[in-house]
Design a protein around this nucleic acid. Structure first.
Lengths: 129, 129
DNA sequence: TATTACGTTGACGTAAACGTCAACTTGGTT
DNA sequence: AACCAAGTTGACGTTTACGTCAACGTAATA
């Protein structure tokens, strides 16, 4: 049984939940990152759209461009693809993973430097008192 | 004995080593991230400047703004600071660490999703053949 | 001495990622 | 019927992080 969360969100609803503006959400759509259903003029966001938006914002926190996130989103789409397409997807998976691992590496270095600096500062504070 | 690497770099030297343009390096200086010595007009970059630049580029790979990196660089400076200043530094350490841990978290989620998707795609490829 | 390599300071241009109006619809509520 | 809240589509403005000239200085080299 697939997750039966057929919840529908309005644009301002999503904006509140993710603490972004409706302008931002519309902008993401204009950039091809979202494609909500419509009810007349009004946009209706599904659970999938919700998940996509979460992915976008995760990407943003990691400094990924919208174009990169869009590629990732495309990659996740279960399209009627041929063998060649699937191979490309697998390559993109590898690339993304490499990028993420580079970032992990950078983070660990920065964390180490923070630790060292904190220790130094604390030592100064103690010897002063 | 402190690391006796008194190497001096020219701007184009640094540009080559880090695969960025000299324009970029000068821009970082204008934004207060670097402050190389001068020999007449020409900029001379020390080992410390080199390290600072490395920090900036690490920050960039993690999506940090130049302003944020500048703050981090400031934080690392051993200034003639008073108690209050040191306390602020410690707070900034905590903040930076939290940010980095959030990013670690995001990365792990993305890596998991990549693994799952890769498995799905590979399965399709196998059952097809 | 003339050229070339490397550097400098403006000044303006640009792409990405939105913010900020303005001028509408539209579907309920007083 | 009048109004308000929530939504819509332009269109233009803004910030960040550089790119891209242009015009010039300086030092070594042919």
């Amino acid at each position: 049984m697939t997750k039966e969360k057929n919840k529908i969100y309005s644009i301002s609803d999503l904006a509140q939940r993710f603490d972004i503006t409706t302008r931002t959400i519309r902008f993401y759509e204009s950039e091809g990152l979202l494609a909500p259903k419509r009810e007349g003029q009004k946009r209706l966001y599904s659970q999938k759209d919700y998940t996509t938006l979460k992915l976008i914002l995760r990407g943003k926190r990691l400094g990924w461009s919208l174009a990169e996130s869009r590629d990732l989103i495309q990659m996740y789409k279960p399209e009627q693809n041929n063998q060649a397409q699937y191979q490309k997807v697998l390559e993109k998976v590898v690339d993304s993973r490499e990028r993420l691992q580079q970032q992990m590496n950078d983070i660990q270095i920065m964390l180490l430097e923070l630790d060292e600096h904190e220790a130094r500062v604390k030592e100064v504070l103690e010897t002063k008192s």
